[in-house]
Design a binder for these strands. Structure first.
Lengths: 142, 142
DNA sequence: AAAATAACTTGTAATTTGCAAGTTAAATTT
DNA sequence: AAATTTAACTTGCAAATTACAAGTTATTTT
């Protein structure tokens, strides 16, 4: 039995979640999709953390395999893939926001990020609704 | 500049948090401390995921270095170290609970774990208060 | 004094990550 | 139509990390 399958059988919610999205690079891709609306391979490459191309390809493949994103060809530019968050992916927003909320107590953020954390703390539901509306609009435009 | 220092300067709250506690084994140690009240090296080794001894030692050292736990000698058995959550460590409960909440939508849990998630969803503040009271009692007993 | 316990450390094989160059399909330019 | 550029990867390989198994050290128990 593969390591992944064995771990799935542990039946622990923390293990389950960590195996699906807990990887550092996976979380950063999800951040870029959720917070910045990024959808294309090249956009993820532009993030300041400098992810390697083989790692990005691998993580996108895993996200799709796990059902957190869907992949489709851009009909206007068939060289491009478009990655879109599913409901399962979007429902990770609370996890992402709690990570940010915690970190904001302990690290120094620039003004833009400080405002984002303020919004998470004061109007988290509103922010989530905005992000969902943005994703719905993107899906309908396709 | 070391990789860790370089990443700290990214000033992103998600990166910051992931670098401190995002590692899979670190999260599992935190789970054992928060949910199960584990405090000793041998107790962490007993978890069903089967962490390697060198990895456990490394993660406990990092948690202490980052200020999420403190280490002290058990005065009654000086072979033992006692690991205790700090406020910084305890304040990760929302992150842990959101991971569990998310996972419970997608994986099958046994009855005990299902009840725990139910409690997180229905009385998260009560559960957090209980855990904090337990940790305070442990600190006072020392 | 000898044996057992608790918490590691060490050496090393296996696996993963990350770098840099290369490949393929599709679009654009010449 | 051919050549070049673009977008998204794949590949080979070095470096780093993980995990296994045995060993070490300090302390307690017998």
């Amino acid at each position: 039995m593969s390591k992944t399958a064995k771990k799935r059988l542990s039946n622990c919610a923390v293990v389950y979640g960590l195996d699906i999205f807990g990887d550092r690079w996976t979380m950063l891709v999800l951040r870029d999709m959720i917070l910045h609306g990024k959808r294309r391979y090249g956009e993820f490459l532009e993030s300041e953390e400098g992810i390697a191309t083989n790692i990005l390809a691998d993580r996108l493949k895993r996200l799709a395999a796990e059902g957190l994103v869907t992949v489709s060809r851009d009909p206007d530019n068939r060289r491009s893939n478009i990655y879109t968050l599913t409901e399962e992916g979007l429902s990770l927003m609370p996890v992402l926001f709690e990570i940010m909320n915690w970190s904001a107590n302990y690290c120094e953020l620039n003004e833009r990020r400080t405002l984002l954390v303020k919004r998470i703390r004061e109007d988290r539901e509103g922010l989530m609704a905005e992000i969902r509306a943005r994703e719905a609009a993107l899906r309908n435009a396709a």
